[in-house]
Design a protein around this nucleic acid. Structure first.
Lengths: 338, 338
DNA sequence: CTGAAAGCGCTAACAC
DNA sequence: GTGTTAGCGCTTTCAG
């Protein structure tokens, strides 16, 4: 058995030319059924598979898309968000026979060195970029090229395609929930305002308070950095101000916050109510189970790939998709005794 | 600016032939320094990057390796192990200018359909396969081909290259620790024996008990399935037998076990001591912080890529690497009062 | 319906 | 040192 069968080989074995074999491999119409069967038999028997490099050279398409996760999300995998996102992208990729390449940058240096070659080497049909920050330099580099791109999370510039959860509405829903339950000293453990997600969740939360006739007391707001320990530290600060309810802008920070509360001997929701954002499985088994604004991270991944495929097929950017979030009430909030 | 610059274009711009350009791009020696400079200037100015498909067609190498995570680890990302492994592989790949493609199978169907084309389509230089089970059919399919492969975790067949943590020694260390502290009714919340990791950790643990003059009481052993809820369920069973210390074969299961203990009103380590396997960050912030056998998951990923690169470069399989584990004592175990 | 032929961008002899 | 040439395996006109 040769290292690599070619169209020519199959053709010889089936007594036809390479063109005909190519036609049956690519499921084209104009082939005599009898010939087709014969060729297919040979293909099956020999286990022939077309050489992707050759195909890609002539077609200009690789069937590969890239997923870029920048260095600043180094702790990337300590937040369940990214794994879920990847799972969504991967699942949609499998369905559309697309191969997913992962570019996980672990430092600024890697990012600066690798990113340019990724976008120019021309073996990617498109790119999904996550976790862009405000004024992201990566995005800037991209816009100059002609590589189809979709960003996960709202970018702060126009003209680029993206999919995002409805962070703003999520923040508002959290405010509604807390206000509706009768909490009075409502605080915010925010996500970093260097991210659009952070900005949007906070904006929505403030708007939600406003439509309930409330305002956010600046002393009751501390921002975290999306990490568990950041949530811990922020909550330690917050409790000095004695809030009776807090909206924590991510599950991971909420788990840190919970530890801080436990450490301070405060009980949830009796001493302090908590509502979180994300709603990943761990929020259900925490102590107590958390009331959350749930966002569909896996679905965001799927949608991102679908948008990208559309772009690759020729759709005009920007394509946009905002995914709904919803309130899931569990034990960390409860009607406030008057 | 054309969609895609070619060697020919650069040659024309620099007043040389495409071969010369190729030589400077590939850093070959026989080029007049002056010419080299001129060509390099043009390349920089135009932002030329070689077409990978063309390169790969002629060289037979793609510079892409695949990482396969089978369907049965569907919950893959609820265990911090895989993210860390991926991070290690990715980091080593970035260093060696290798591109990492991710194949996350979410169902048996996807696996059966995609796997054959992955290994035959010839656009991968090599493959890293994780989480193989006993008698893994994926492995069987692989051994027939000539694609370099390294498995993460000890496979149950000979002749295949792999990297693994020293699970057996880890189990033994756990036993030593518990025995040394004076615990009497020592139990095991094991990993599934359908995995070599499960088998090895259990074997090592039993051997460790033996060298301390102990045996594992079968009633004090319940196996979990590597999940949080599995750990919860298994611990619920175990506590009926009143062990005074338990070796839990993974962090994730340990967290489930901890919830079960809390639910039963038992305190750790007073009522029951716990030692876990993995030692990921969450084991440090749990209540109480867990004594663990730590395994270097990120490093396993790096080593896997290095072995694979060696194989691709022509090394003779099987290549093997066993990574050391070590005991980290925290609060979930303590000297037993006699 | 099928074959012959050209060419995708690159590398690697082989000449000069 | 540098240019010319012949493919790598495939798709795609273009004839027949």
């Amino acid at each position: 058995m040769p290292a690599h069968l070619t169209l020519e080989d199959i053709g010889r074995l089936a007594g036809v030319s390479r063109s005909t074999v190519s036609r049956v491999v690519n499921q084209q119409a104009n082939v005599n059924p009898a010939v087709r069967d014969r060729v297919e038999e040979v293909i099956k028997r020999t286990g022939y598979a077309p050489n992707r490099a050759a195909r890609s050279l002539v077609s200009g398409r690789s069937g590969i898309i890239g997923l870029v996760i920048p260095s600043r999300v180094h702790t990337v995998f300590d937040d369940p968000y990214f794994p879920r996102l990847i799972q969504g992208i991967s699942s949609a990729a499998n369905e559309t026979r697309t191969t997913l390449s992962l570019f996980l940058f672990q430092s600024e240096r890697e990012e600066e060195e690798l990113y340019p070659r990724i976008i120019t080497s021309g073996y990617l049909d498109g790119l999904i970029v996550t976790a862009t920050r405000m004024a992201d330099p990566l995005l800037a580099q991209l816009s100059s090229g002609d590589l189809p791109v979709v960003v996960v999370g709202r970018p702060d510039v126009d003209g680029v395609s993206y999919v995002d959860a409805d962070n703003r509405n999520g923040g508002a829903l959290a405010a509604d929930h807390l206000c509706g339950l009768g909490y009075q000293r409502i605080g915010l453990l925010g996500a970093p305002t260097s991210t659009t997600a952070g900005v949007d969740r906070t904006t929505g939360f403030v708007e939600g308070l406003a439509r309930n006739g409330r305002a956010l007391d600046p002393r009751l707001r501390v921002d975290g950095d999306f990490t568990d320990s950041g949530g811990y530290a922020a909550m330690e600060q917050l409790i000095e101000q004695r809030p009776d309810a807090v909206f924590v802008a991510s599950d991971t920070m909420a788990h840190g916050a919970l530890r801080a509360l436990r450490g301070a001997g405060l009980s949830v929701p009796d001493d302090l109510a908590l509502i979180s954002f994300d709603g990943f499985p761990a929020s259900e088994t925490s102590q107590p189970p958390l009331t959350v604004i749930h966002q569909p991270a896996t679905r965001a991944g799927e949608e991102a790939l679908h948008l990208l495929n559309a772009l690759i097929a020729g759709a005009e950017p920007p394509l946009k998709k905002i995914l709904p979030v919803d309130l899931v009430v569990r034990d960390s909030t409860e009607p406030r005794q008057p």
